[in-house]
Nucleic acid binder design. Structure first.
Length: 458
RNA sequence: GUGGUUGUAGCUCAGUUGGUUAGAGCGCCUGAUUGUGGUUCAGGAGGUCGUCGGUUCGAGACCGAUCUUCCACCCCA
């Protein structure tokens, strides 16, 4: 090797052990998605630029990976644009495709394109990588997996209730105790902005409010002033900052505060309904918490907003999020289709489970039985034995060459194989094979004609 | 995108004010042990010190650029 190879910033290789752990999470997520009636779809890793651009705000556009056109693309650019050296005007002329930034927008595109084939309400799930040209940090990558479940064509708040249950079911089976599902409603945020007279600064207001638990009341107020929100408006919003207590108590405060806002009152009612349902059904490992400061950046949410926080002992950003969007397909020309969905952050959940030691030990075993190789004749017999074991559903393998027994044992040890089979000349002549239990060191004889006898002992 | 931080063997890290041949632990390979792993003992391999350039008689160390890591913003899974 002339020079050491490398991979791009924010990307990762996954070893067999890491893939096993990732698959463990994926299989549980998938199982519960299907249990709740979701069907899988997949979409291309790249879309036409116009499908993605403008859907995530200005910041989002900057983070979208653009794909250079094929062929002699630069000669097709007019001289004025070319010599302007302006990226913003040049980029659209030399890139027509872009890597997907999330799974929700491609899904909306999918729904619109296939609206005549889809049976509504449509519940789909999707587990695929997405790409963002972000600066990497812990738990932040430029290529990462999202696991999304969305329902479109169903307005009922029961969907929100089910999605909360789904979160709880997945985290429970992963063994992750103490997650907090935070819930809020865009209508409440709008109502607050309306009541305090800052509806034209809704986004700035919510983005600042979202930082409350991170930077504190004073800093949030300072940011609001900087964004042009009046002091009198902020003063009216002050009750929000110190809002503590149970979900019911918070709802009462909000109800009073938003009594003059029709939309705000609607939002309060929606949250109340969802909370009541969930309370009736109960959650196993997660707790549901109303959090008025929860804003989430994505602008397309119109109703409920969710975010899942890892257990407080782990320092990690949100491990999931979602919400209701009433008009996502509208941007692609299909009006009046309401959607609601949630997303699991696979890579972050992985880091949390790793930190808490919650991956099952059984994932370390990638092979149940290794049969040692003692030579040509013995190997042939061993191959037959291995085939029989495989037919029982065991993960069995024959060491490929008649290397030193010591070396073969060492290999078995490294691979954490629980059983090793010895089938040498002696055993072959006696029609037997030896099974060594690698944890206890015990060895047992079995007959070659009846490998099932060994299988029954497992 | 802004500001900072990091990079020495496969891994975790030492390396003094710039000065001979860059070290340790773990791991790896070989042997003790030609049919028994995890323990032990002996020996061995492996580094153009992230990369490129500069300062200097001399650079792992100083300077610049670049890539990478992590962190705080921005934003977000």
């Amino acid at each position: 090797m002339a020079q050491k190879p490398s991979i791009p910033k924010g990307t990762r290789d996954f070893s067999p052990a890491e893939v096993a752990k990732r698959n463990h999470i994926i299989s549980i997520v998938k199982k519960h998605f299907e249990r709740y009636g979701f069907q899988p779809i997949e979409t291309p890793s790249f879309e036409n630029s116009e499908t993605l651009l403008g859907k995530y705000g200005e910041e989002g556009d900057r983070l979208i990976f653009k794909i250079l056109n094929s062929g002699d693309f630069i000669s097709k650019v007019d001289d004025v644009t070319y010599s302007s050296k302006n990226s913003n005007s040049l980029t659209p002329k030399i890139t027509e495709k872009a890597l997907r930034y999330d799974l929700t927008v491609p899904f909306a595109r999918y729904v619109v394109m296939h609206q005549n084939e889809i049976d509504f309400p449509f519940k789909r799930y999707q587990i695929q990588p997405v790409w963002r040209a972000d600066r990497p940090q812990k738990g932040r990558f430029r290529e990462f997996y999202q696991c999304d479940a969305d329902v479109v064509g169903a307005n009922s708040l029961l969907q929100e209730v089910e999605l909360i249950q789904l979160y709880d079911a997945v985290f429970t089976e992963l063994g992750l105790e103490g997650t907090t599902i935070k819930i809020n409603n865009r209508k409440i945020l709008y109502g607050i902005a309306e009541v305090i007279g800052a509806q034209n600064r809704l986004v700035d207001f919510t983005v600042a409010l979202d930082k409350l638990d991170k930077i504190g009341e004073q800093a949030v107020k300072a940011e609001m002033i900087k964004k042009g929100i009046s002091e009198s408006a902020i003063a009216k919003a002050t009750p929000l900052f110190g809002m503590v207590g149970t979900n019911e108590e918070k709802l009462e405060i909000l109800k009073g505060l938003l009594s003059e806002s029709e939309l705000g009152t609607e939002g309060v009612e929606e949250v109340k309904t969802i909370l009541t349902y969930v309370e009736g059904l109960g959650l196993t490992s997660a707790s549901l918490q109303l959090d008025v400061t929860l804003a989430r950046g994505l602008n397309y949410y119109t109703g409920a907003i969710f975010e899942v926080a890892a257990p407080a002992t782990v320092k990690m950003g949100s491990i999931g999020g979602g919400g209701r969007y009433d008009d996502l397909t509208g941007i692609f020309g299909l009006k009046d289709v309401s959607g609601v969905g949630i997303s699991f952050g696979l890579d972050r959940i992985y880091l949390v489970l790793e930190e808490l030691g919650l991956f099952p030990e059984s994932l370390e075993t990638s092979l149940d039985i290794l049969c040692l190789n003692f030579g040509e004749k013995e190997g042939a017999a061993a191959l037959k034995l291995v085939s029989a074991l495989r037919s029982f559903g065991l993960r069995a393998d024959l060491y490929p060459s008649a290397a030193k027994v010591q070396k073969q044992f060492k290999y078995a040890d490294k691979r954490k194989v629980p059983y090793v089979i010895l089938l040498g000349e002696k055993e072959l002549n006696a029609g037997q094979f030896i099974v060594k239990d690698m944890t206890t060191g015990n060895q047992e004889y079995y007959t070659l004609n009846n490998p099932e006898e060994f299988f029954q002992t497992l």
